[in-house]
Amino acid sequence: MKALAARRHHRFAPVVLLLLALLVTGGVYALLAPSPASADSASTQDIETGKKLFQANCATCHGPNAEGSDTVPSLVGVGAAAVDFQVSTGRMPMAANGPQAIEKPAQFDAEQTSQLAAYVASLGTGPAIPTADQVDPAKGDAASGAAIFRTNCAMCHNAVGAGGALSEGKFAPALTDVDPRNIYQAMLTGPQSMPVFNDANVSPDEKRDIIAYLAEQHDGSAGGLTLGALGPVSEGLWAWVVGLGLLIGAAVWIGAKSS
């Protein structure tokens, strides 16, 4: 102990501490987050802490009892999944009013997020946070996922999940680097403009198939550079810039007098 105390002022101490803290947070997260069972059996203490966090950070807009208002949605019955999605992707708390809440670094750590989720889940039943098994791409069928994705998702998120535009400045974000857990939660809870895809519409297995399809996209394209996977417009742009650019360069060289 003495040795530890002696090194308290070592210049690497903050780094070591930070690493430790991250390790602990990660451990807590691993224990708490993925299991709906743990959300269900959230201790009263978690709910209490979550309530305090809520009062301090969310109640200004969502109201002291999360009842919402004309312009702000009520959180009663949205479930732990909605809270985990919004808070762990940094969409909530919102930074500023805009067409839609945007993804940013999360404000709360995993433990606080789960406490908030536990509190909101205690207000009314709603979708729980999916288990690790439910969102495991390896267990899904990419071909089935591709078919479901095409009909239900591609019109907003693009055929390979590169994102797309909605009206009035809103947009469907790219899904390329989204955590599978958040993809599942988004389908389940329908954040913001996105509609809800409940289990009767897209079954839990089909949701996992979609996750498997999106994971398949991490391999990139069989054809080479994906060029943003935005379709013919970006392809046309590259044809003009790279293709015609190189060829006109060559033409200028051919037409120029040799020295």
Binding site: T151, G190, P195, V196, N198, A200, E206
Partner: peptide, 21 residues
Amino acid sequence: ATDPTGRPIKASDVTIGSVFH
């Protein structure tokens, strides 16, 4: 029925905010 899976849809399945193809 749902597209493309072809499952018939119950009214109770359709929650507020859902969209079924």
